[in-house]
Design a protein around this nucleic acid. Sequence first.
DNA 1: ACTGGTCGCG
Length: 824
Amino acid sequence: MLPLLKLVPTYKLHPVFRVSTLHRWVYQCFSASTNSLQMTSHNFDSNKKETDFNFLFNSCINVNVTKQLHALLVVLGKSQNVVLSTKLINLYVTFGDISLSRSTFNHIHKKNIFSWNSMIAAYVRSSKYHEAMNCVNEFLSVSDDLRPDFYTFPPILKACVNLIDGKKLHCWVLKMGFEHDVFVASSLINLYSRFGVLNAAHKVFVDMPVRDVGSWNAMISGFCQNGNAAEALGVLNSMKVEGVKMDTVTVSSILPVCAQSDDIVNGVLIHLHVLKHGLETDVFVSNALINMYSKFCRLEDAQKVFDHMEVRDLVSWNSIIAAYEQNDDPNTALRFFKGMQLVGIRPDLLTVVSLTSIFGQLSDQRISRSIHGFVMRGEWLEKDVVIGNALVNMYAKLGDMNCAHTVFEQLPSKDTISWNTLITGYAQNGLASEAIDAYNMMEECRDITPNQGTWVSIIPAYSHVGALQQGMKIHGRLIKNSLYLDVFVATCLIDMYGKCGRLEDAMSLFYEIPRETSVPWNAILASLGIHGRGEEALQLFKDMLAERVKADHITFVSLLSACSHSGLVDEGQKCFDIMQKEYGIKPSLKHYGCMVDLLGRAGYLEKAYDLLNNMPLQADASIWGALLAACRIHGNAELGTLASSRLLEVDSENVGYYVLLSNIYANSGKWDGVVKVRSLARDRGLRKTPGWSSVVVGSKVEVFYTGNQTHPKYTEIYKELRVLSAKMKSLGYVPDYSFVLQDVEEDEKEQILISHSERLAIAFGIISTPPRSPIRIFKNLRVCGDCHNATKYISRITERDIVVRDSNRFHHFKDGICSCDDYW
DNA sequence: ACTGGTCGCG
């Protein structure tokens, strides 16, 4: 007869009121004199049955009280008693002292199956899986008369660390006929789920003649942890059909699935179930609720759950801290961290991971360094890679890639995420070629396999420098394993094709991939925008709505900038309105920037200025910059002066603005203004962001910095530029010195214009590629106005199509004409 | 007397 359902007494923990009983007792035994100790032992009837000791065992609340009880049992001559010793083994491991469990176990002369089971389980409970397996082997070799029973298997199955052993154990279970025991079968389900063999797990599950809520939970969590949300919810549903009610475990494994599959309806329904059945007093449940609401960005709900908790553990605090940290509120997160310290809960590794992210967001250099020190002192770097990865990420967020790289180098072990973090750090700090170098080094490591995270960090780096060939190589590699269908990877590829001027390739990829979320739509809308195809962007937006894809704030940034690049003022205005009225999206600085740009470019300078003045947010440099650029196009020196003075208040470091202002003055003949701006720039000792341009020749990306004279082809490049310059002048080109800020003689100014990075890159492209082939240039800043003009002439003289992508948009030069004229 | 299934990081 198979043991199917058993009533199992679970180990109840120690009612506190009994503590005093034991203390009084132990006090009588030990704190008094030797005589009274003996007297007490005499008084205590040593023939008492084992169950008479229960109240003492129930009174043990920590390892010290347990030791006292242990000593008492020794005095009473009970140290050989297998029942009492087994209880001690379990108590010691409950309080985290596995070595005391072991020595207690060793002292038992006649070990029985109960004591072996407890010892094996004790190792598993303290995550010493290797020792647990050793103990099993010891058990099999030492005792001839004892056989494992169905209590032995669940812990062993849990300790199993590879699938091959798992399958052997499964055979063993079958041979001994334990496969229908609820606990053993649930453990098998759990084992197969851990190794991702869900069909095997599911087979064990369906073959079970009797299932308790634990078996359902094992199956559900198996699907959950392998990311099969639909199947998990399916099992949950049949559980409901069979009339089994969700318990705290079910709820805490299903809630993360709701978050993962963006299923807020089910999430809230489950929360209602929790409230109806009073499950919210369980810490696991409340913690899972906090995490779920955090993923849905519903911080009020997360906090409500947190506030109502009666008992909060480390995970609760970590969860609420991470909730605010993940939703860009580092200050509140920090307040909760302080609250946690106040109630005396010690931070663990994950707390520190959140803290690094918080300080990265707060961009506080000093505290960031102190947390680095804290990690080093605790030698936490050795404990887990995640903490090191978090530090690399923190320094990257602070823009300090030197420190990030140093920490990275010091990591005792590096995983794929370490590399991804480093690559992303370089890429997001505009150091694309360093990102590419890091990626190439990563490819050389044999034990590191790139994953989705790698692609989404390296592809943008390639598109940043216009390395179309390399990007396409990755695309080809991803087609082999279908990862290009991953929405995030595909979106990067779309963005890359867009930014590299291959709009058609971007479009065809877009139509190949799943489009249920706004993410790929936003990318393709932005691509259309920088190519000046505003009408098509608006049409695609209509398609997006027809396919019931929800537009978000990024959609509107893409859309507004598309309108702005194509001069679609009314349409842009309309988008701005429906964004607020129909979607309830509060415009951010980016949206206002697009609108100022849109109105300003089209010549509605006053309207743009009004909007800027009346917006509820503090204008930043990019918005004043947009207004200033518009003033330059339309030659409005007054407003331009005003904009630039405000601009220099918020960002006096960016030399580009001085150039713009000087250019405005020069165009309106205000030469004293030009002089003033130049001396201002000189006095501030401006170090400008190094401008660079890149050009792809063959499969190699060549990068040129302004004034770069170290390139191996330097002589030929400058020779070509001088030849071109003479031809350009004969066609009517006049250098525009207002783009030169330095106070030098005219011929030197011409030399400076000639050494602009975009000019060097174009010249290098001309001398390195066959005649009349097209040239693609990338520039990290905006193209200089004089270079823009010069490139028109160059395209005519050399009969080449020249495509220049700068930080703002595409410029397509063909036969002396550019696709856009408002180049600033 | 001993057994299974639950929450948090980049």
